[in-house]
């Protein structure tokens, strides 16, 4: 099951060491997920991980963060993916400046000025009490970058000695719990707007559950039920993979899992599939 996926990663690696989203030039995100997946690869399949790490390092910016692509000069949420990928490949220093970058990154809506403004005009459709992570600097926090940052920070928690990590993980978890949709799952992060409830998506529900590993299950029962239901009907490999990872994180993954019905698998989806299937 996994060997064809690894072969796909091997043949789709670009000459600069990175991976793309299916066509075109290399990006950090698929490269980081491929590197995370590569720790499970059989020795018989050659993938140039050193070259991939060099590509990743080439995207590091002077402010300590990472750019998503060689053509972008801003650090973004992908910094958490770079940290995670370097860490699991044994290439991260415990005082890497990107750790500080990630800890300092938070949604623009959670600054005290924004909170005060929101309180004054009573416009708070969303709970802004907790610090999540944004996709892009100086913008609001959303579910997917918060979940990815939490997963990365939790993997670093025993490697990096920094008193800010624990409180930030707590804040990120609270952010996710506050952004649950009425159906129990998660969408992109706008669970209630102008008095209307938003519906959840399978991929973000799986991602949030994966990030909430270790959270007491008592409040998550509706999320589990929803994720189990979504797993039966989901189409894309990406959504399927996140649901599997999310349910496994809470030890409620059924023994018989419906297989995904892939249309295509780009390198990022392939890597996520490997992570879902190969992880213990």
């Amino acid at each position: 099951m996994l060997e064809p996926a690894f072969r796909h990663l091997a043949v789709s690696q670009n000459s600069d060491g990175g991976w793309n989203f299916g066509t075109g030039s290399s990006w950090l995100e698929p490269t980081a997920y491929a590197l995370l997946a590569c720790r499970h690869r059989p020795a018989s399949i050659p993938i140039h991980t050193n070259k991939a790490i060099l590509f990743l390092e080439s995207l590091r910016l002077p402010d300590g963060g990472w750019s998503p692509h060689p053509g972008v000069r801003n650090s973004t949420w992908v910094t958490c993916l770079a940290l995670h990928a370097l860490h699991v490949n044994g290439r991260l220093s415990s005082d890497d400046p990107a750790i500080r970058w990630l800890l300092q990154s938070s949604g623009a809506e959670s600054t005290w000025v924004s909170r005060l403004r929101s309180w004054l005009v009573s416009s708070g459709s969303q709970n802004t009490s907790f610090d999540g992570w944004p996709w892009y600097v100086d913008t609001a926090a959303w579910v997917a970058p918060t979940a990815a940052s939490l997963i990365a920070l939790q993997s670093l928690a025993h490697f990096v000695v920094d008193p800010r990590i624990g409180p930030r993980i707590h804040q990120g978890r609270e952010f996710l719990l506050a952004r649950r949709c009425a159906d129990g799952g998660w969408n992109h992060g706008s669970n209630r707007a102008l008095g209307y409830d938003g519906d959840s998506y399978p991929e973000t529900t799986g991602m949030a559950l994966a990030a909430l590993q270790g959270t007491p299950s008592s409040g998550l029962q509706t999320a589990y039920q929803l994720a189990l239901q979504q797993l039966k009907t989901v189409r894309s490999v990406e959504a399927w993979s996140w649901l599997v990872m999310g349910l496994r994180a809470h030890k409620i993954l059924p023994e018989q899992i419906p297989e995904p019905r892939p249309r295509f698998m780009d390198p990022r989806e392939t890597a996520l599939f490997i992570l879902a299937v190969a992880a213990p």
């Binding site: 692509h69 973004t76 949420w77 944004p134 996709w135 892009y136 913008t139 959303w142």
Partner: peptide
């Protein structure tokens, strides 16, 4: 892939 979902 650069600006996120949504393009906040």
């Amino acid at each position: 892939a650069i600006y996120g979902w949504p393009k906040n």
